[in-house]
């Protein structure tokens, strides 16, 4: 849920599920790493909850990525597509 008071609700897309899978982490492990409950990781992945800036930074630290690589206003394209098309271009 967006924390704004009023106005248009702008979505925050994230790549948590795919990053978690890539690192072979369960929700519980990621939750333990950022000190939240596993249900909160599930809510983030489903888009039911938008993280605070603090939690967003913690999550990015776990994966060693900048915030924009994990969270974005625009939907993320599938990683496989990106990699495949990169290969085609080079």
């Amino acid at each position: 849920m967006s924390p704004i008071r009023r106005g248009e609700d702008q979505p925050i897309h994230n790549r948590l599920r795919v990053l978690r899978a890539e690192h072979g982490m369960s929700r519980g492990q990621l939750a333990q790493a950022v000190e939240v409950n596993p249900q909160t990781i599930g809510a983030l992945e489903r888009g039911d909850h938008y993280p605070s800036l603090d939690l967003a930074f913690r999550l990015c630290e776990v994966f060693g990525l900048p915030v924009e690589a994990v969270f974005n206003r625009e939907p993320f394209a599938p990683l496989s597509n990106q990699i495949y098309h990169q290969g085609e271009q080079s």
Binding site: P11, I12, H13, N14, R15, L16, R17, V18, R20, A21, G24, M25, S26, R27, G28, Q29, A31, Q32, N37, P38, Q39, I41, G42, E45, R46, G47, Y50, N72, P75, F76, A77, P78, L79, S80, N81
Partner: peptide, 25 residues
């Protein structure tokens, strides 16, 4: 309740997610 939320965090992930795209909020 999502069974994945109740997995033991001390056990390695036994199911890798297969979604490639980001999750829409």
């Amino acid at each position: 309740d999502d069974p994945e939320d109740l997995e033991n965090p001390d056990r390695p992930a036994d199911r890798a997610g297969n979604d490639e795209g980001g999750i829409s909020a």
